Simulated scan of single mutants.
Amino acid sequence: MLRKAATGLFALIIVLVLVLSPSAQPHKAAAAPSFAKGADISWVPGMEAQGYKWKDKNGVQRDILDILKNDYQINSVRIRVWVNPSSSYTNGYMNKERAAALAKRAKDAGLSVMLTLHYSDSWADPGKQTKPAAWAGYTFQQLMDAVWNWTRDVMTTMQSYGVTPDWVQIGNETNNGMLWDDGKASLSMQNYAWLVNTGNNAVKSVSSGTKTIVHLSNGYDNSLFVWNIGGLIANGATFDIIGMSLYPSASDWSSKVTQTIANANDMISRYGKPVMVTEIGMDYNQPSAAKSFVSDIKTKIRNLSGGKGLGVFYWEPEATPGYNGGYNMGAWQADMKPTIALEGFLN
């Protein structure tokens, strides 16, 4: 009898230890800023590996995160993660370990962190949502299992570096779904919704306080958002925030901002979800227009109804003219000094 009682007590203790252990519980993200003024900095590690060094507007060489934070009031960063990327500094490189190291560096600098999970080995965007090569032959159930396992793997890798992301995008610019063709929204909105749910639930299983984002391009395109976001919700998808991209020109940015704000207000009214503009950019050689654009969209997103505008992120502002074979919407010049574009973030 005593042996049985002792055995039962021991088993109870083991169960309590497992249940109460911090590693057994979903972690909670630290409080995110009430309004994120952000920059996607995913090219930074590769640029540094190539020898790039940034200067501030006075020509003083400083750490790029220090410049972003202390000169332009950036309080958050966005970091992409690919499944099995190539070693290319520009079109690969950002595996989970490099992303986690960059996230730790940002956190140590006092910045909040957003992850963008590209469920691909390279760029996922409206024109391509290619499955990782290792997942190419999977059944749909195996695909969902892979999304679950990899998402949790990225999250636990982040936590091993001491980082709990504030936000995680489940995919990137998923205008027509993700992981084509299985998750192509025009072929099966339900499959797309299930994949979003799987990613969302995987994030929450590791960090219950991290907010998840579904992100589409062309924030001014209301019909796209009604079809995609509405379709997801009608098919039972669970996520926290609607993300948008906006890349206007110097001549049409004002009208595009007006359309994007109207769309954002419609999303809030229809679905009750907050909105975040997770990518913006404009040609580096139109710095005055870019500064005005940043200031305008920052102010109008912050003032969305019900406080449901959560932030604006500039995409890869550290990029110099023509980086990666022709990208010209960064906010640094060839002399490694910034344009005035990011001054639009200043209060």
Rank of each mutant, 00 (worst) to 15 (best):
I64W: 08
Y220M: 05
G162R: 04
I74H: 00
A290Q: 08
T299G: 14
L102K: 10
S42G: 14
V83S: 08
K204A: 11
T278I: 07
D108R: 03
N75E: 04
A6R: 07
S292C: 02
V163I: 02
L232C: 12
Q169R: 00
I261Y: 01
G59T: 01
R152T: 10
I233V: 12
G281W: 01
N222I: 09
L102I: 11
V206H: 04
L68R: 03
W315T: 09
L115S: 09
G209I: 03
K104I: 06
T174K: 04
V83M: 01
I64M: 12
R152P: 06
Q169D: 09
A101N: 09
S188L: 08
I280S: 07
G326P: 10
A103K: 00
I79D: 15
D66Y: 08
G8A: 15
N303V: 00
G8N: 13
N58F: 02
S186E: 06
N303E: 11
Y323C: 02
T139F: 05
W167A: 12
G243T: 05
S305E: 12
G322T: 00
Q129N: 13
L310V: 06
S86W: 00
S292V: 08
M329Y: 12
S21F: 12
M189G: 06
E318S: 11
W150E: 13
Q259H: 03
M267W: 01
T156E: 13
M336P: 01
D71I: 02
A6G: 10
A185N: 09
M244Q: 08
G306I: 02
V203T: 01
P165V: 02
E318W: 02
A100N: 07
D153K: 00
V44I: 14
D296F: 04
V19C: 10
S207Y: 06
A202H: 04
W167G: 05
S295I: 06
L232I: 11
S34D: 15
N222W: 13
D40E: 15
N347S: 11
G236F: 03
L2C: 08
S23N: 07
G46R: 05
N91V: 00
E343I: 00
P22G: 15
F140Y: 13
A250V: 00
A341N: 04
H118D: 11
D240F: 05
S120W: 00
G281C: 07
E173W: 00
G236K: 01
D125F: 11
K4T: 15
D166P: 01
R302T: 05
S205H: 11
Y161G: 14
E316I: 04
P274M: 03
W180K: 11
N58I: 00
I229M: 14
V17C: 13
R62N: 10
K28T: 13
N218V: 08
S120K: 01
G309W: 04
G137Y: 06
P26K: 09
V19A: 13
L12P: 03
L68Y: 06
G272C: 08
G127H: 09
F10M: 13
